[in-house]
């Protein structure tokens, strides 16, 4: 697909049109956490449009609201103010059942802390979302094996997460995120615990999913390689989206990245 510079600029700036090319849209999203008397404004009116099939990286210092933003656009929690649309659907309008369906089919989550179910084997962790989606056991088993092989965990189907290294757990989490062929992959530091080689493999896996299958990838990361292979990079600070840029516009040798 040929992209004209005008088109690209329009996309990077966040299109004003609400076309179907936009898979996730956040409109003036605010999130206020109340702990006792204190209020934490984790997000202060974030606006965001993510194109279908886009690879978006999010950067920001610790406590800037990345995880909060992920929770909002991943339908894991409701904003205090503002709206989140995923695939044209206002998430706030969904009931518990529909949300479950939505999380199950549309989004694959890769958590910073993996969040594997400790009592289940790797394979069962990967097949769990498939059984929630009603895939029959045999098919789920087959696909689970394929996915684990894809992330390079061939011979470890029956290990418990506790018996794996951090990087291996992260790969199980990636395999699990792909289980129901999601349209969106939300990843929080997916390469943080991987060695360089597996990290690169995972990046190329995500890029491949994006290029070949049109999966939208949204990931928080400080990994230079990931930043460089993304379509857009978004900076967030104190709950405000500060800057959006293409990798080609950024000087990766500046101090900010080291």
């Amino acid at each position: 697909m040929e992209v004209t510079p005008e088109k690209l600029r329009a996309l990077l700036a966040g299109s004003e049109s609400e076309g179907s090319g936009c898979i996730t849209r956040a409109v003036r999203v605010k999130k206020i956490y109340r702990t006792g008397e204190q209020e934490t404004h984790a997000l202060r009116g974030a606006c965001l449009q993510i194109r279908r099939g886009e690879y978006l990286s999010i950067m920001g210092p610790s406590g800037s609201g990345k995880s909060t933003l992920f929770n909002m656009i991943g339908a894991l929690s409701k904003p205090s103010e503002g709206k989140v649309y995923i695939d044209q659907v206002d998430v706030a309008q969904l009931d518990f059942d529909e949300l479950a369906w939505f999380r199950c089919r549309k989004i694959g989550y890769i958590f910073q802390s993996y969040n594997l179910v400790a009592t289940m084997t790797c394979l069962e962790n990967v097949t769990l979302p498939m059984s929630f989606a009603g895939v029959d056991a045999e098919e789920a088993h087959e696909r689970g094996v394929e996915l684990l092989e894809l992330v390079g965990l061939g011979g470890r189907f029956l290990h418990k997460p506790g018996e794996l290294s951090g990087g291996q757990q992260q790969r199980v989490a990636i395999a699990r995120a792909l289980a129901n062929r999601p349209e969106i992959i939300l990843a929080d530091e997916p390469t943080a615990n991987l060695d360089q080689k597996t990290g690169e493999e995972m990046i190329s896996l995500l890029t491949k999913l994006r290029n070949e299958l049109g999966v939208t990838v949204i990931s928080a990361t400080h990994d230079l390689k990931m930043l460089k292979s993304s379509d857009r990079i978004l900076w967030i600070r104190d709950g405000v989206i500060e800057r959006v840029a293409r990798p080609s516009e950024i000087d990766f040798s500046s101090g900010e990245f080291h």
Partner: peptide, 16 residues
């Protein structure tokens, strides 16, 4: 709680 949260993210229904 965490395991429950995980299952919910993966599409578990409240009734489940």
């Amino acid at each position: 709680f965490r395991e429950i949260g995980t299952m919910k993210c993966l599409g578990a229904l409240s009734s489940f």
